[in-house]
Simulated assay, not measured.
Amino acid sequence: MKEKKYGFRAAVCLSLLLTVVLIALMVGSYHISPFQIVQTLLGSGSKLQNFTVFQIRLPRIVLAVIVASALGVSGGILQGITRNPLAEPGMIGINAGAALFVVLWISAGTTDYYSTLPVLTILGMPLLAMTGSLLSVGLIYLLSSKSGIRPVRFILTGIGVNGGILAVISFYQLSMSKGDYNQVLTWTNGSLWGSNWNYILLTAPLVILLIGAVLFRSKNLDVLALGDELAAGVGLSVPKERLLFLLLATFLAALATSVAGSIAFLGLLGPQIAKRLTGPVHGKMLPMAALISSILLVGADVIAKNLFSPLEIPVGIVVSIVGVPYFIYLMIKER
């Protein structure tokens, strides 16, 4: 794709994201006008406006962008290494493994919502999420092949492991208190309800570092997407590179899940839409996937907060309402 066309489309998507962000800052139980938003961001807002923007809405928006970027890039990687447009972290057990460990961690000895968890518990969440995701991916890897990752078998095994982990979480729900049940419901459906700056400071540097590492090696991902024989023919170590990208995708999905629960289909929608706009070159497609996923998640969160206000529905449900039909469309198209 020509640089001018790519730049124009990226600028349009960035403008859409800024528009959705402005809407997210404005709407809610307390409405703030665009002029008041600008005043508040420049330091001239009232006490109530400052609290609403900087302590409630802005952290939620920033965390949504971090989570969406991580899931969008993770899904783009998985679709590249498996050469399957249906691959995404919520479908093959990566998110579920992370969610299981985080749910067990936050419900151990506390009945608080995760916005009021102790700092030590918050700090442990990404580590536990990564551990859960790695164990899940390790199990999938062991079950799917003895001589490396076979894309089709890997995805089918992942779907089975994902179902098994979700069954474990459901079984765990049978013997928990009402407070713990609400937490599990949050993590299995995905929610940005408890967002605060602690989660952002903890996850943002790691997500940026991992995405940077992916983009640095994106040309190898382009080669892997062409097929094993061609990749090996140009001197690429296929098993090593595929495993490396799988680990990067796992870490990104785990970080997103550790602070927002399991949001399915976002890692499917972002990369697929981005590929239609940029083509298959991952150096361009992955940043666009992060941008589009951010638009989708911030927009979905606005709907989740305000559709049945004051009742808030998990944002993962809103994303799935869009994702499921698109997933079915891709399945039909791939036949």
Rank of each mutant, 00 (worst) to 15 (best):
K4H: 00
Y6I: 11
R9P: 00
A10R: 11
L17C: 10
T19R: 05
I23R: 09
V27A: 15
Y30P: 03
S33H: 02
G43R: 07
G45A: 04
K47N: 04
L48K: 11
Q49V: 01
T52S: 14
F54Q: 02
Q55N: 13
Q55P: 00
I56R: 07
R57P: 03
R57M: 04
P59V: 02
I61M: 05
V62E: 07
V65S: 01
I66Q: 11
G75N: 08
L78C: 00
R83A: 13
L86D: 10
L86H: 10
I92Q: 13
N95E: 12
A96S: 07
A98S: 15
A99K: 01
L100M: 10
V102G: 09
V102M: 10
V102C: 12
V103A: 09
I106H: 10
A108E: 09
T111V: 10
T116C: 12
V119E: 14
V119C: 11
L120C: 09
G124H: 10
M125P: 15
M125S: 10
P126K: 02
S136P: 12
V137I: 12
L142C: 05
L143S: 05
S144T: 08
S145N: 14
S147V: 12
G148Y: 01
I149C: 03
R150E: 14
P151M: 04
T157E: 03
G158R: 03
I159C: 12
G160W: 04
G160C: 09
N162M: 08
N162D: 15
I165T: 04
A167G: 12
A167D: 13
V168K: 04
I169H: 13
S170Y: 13
F171G: 15
L174N: 09
S175R: 14
M176C: 08
M176R: 00
G179F: 11
G179N: 14
T188D: 09
T188V: 15
L192Q: 05
G194C: 06
G194V: 02
L201T: 06
A204S: 10
P205C: 03
G212Y: 02
K219Y: 11
N220S: 09
D222T: 05
L224I: 12
D228F: 08
L230T: 14
G233P: 04
G235W: 03
L236Y: 01
V238T: 10
P239M: 07
K240C: 00
R242I: 05
R242P: 03
R242H: 04
L246D: 07
L247Y: 09
A253F: 01
A253S: 12
A253Y: 01
A254W: 05
L255G: 04
A256F: 03
T257R: 06
F265T: 10
F265N: 03
L266D: 14
G279Y: 12
V281E: 11
P287H: 06
P287F: 02
S293R: 07
S294K: 04
L296N: 02
V298F: 08
F308P: 01
E312A: 14
I313W: 02
V315S: 09
V315T: 02
V315K: 01
S320F: 05
S320N: 08
I321W: 11
V322P: 06
I328C: 12
Y329S: 14
L330V: 14
L330G: 02
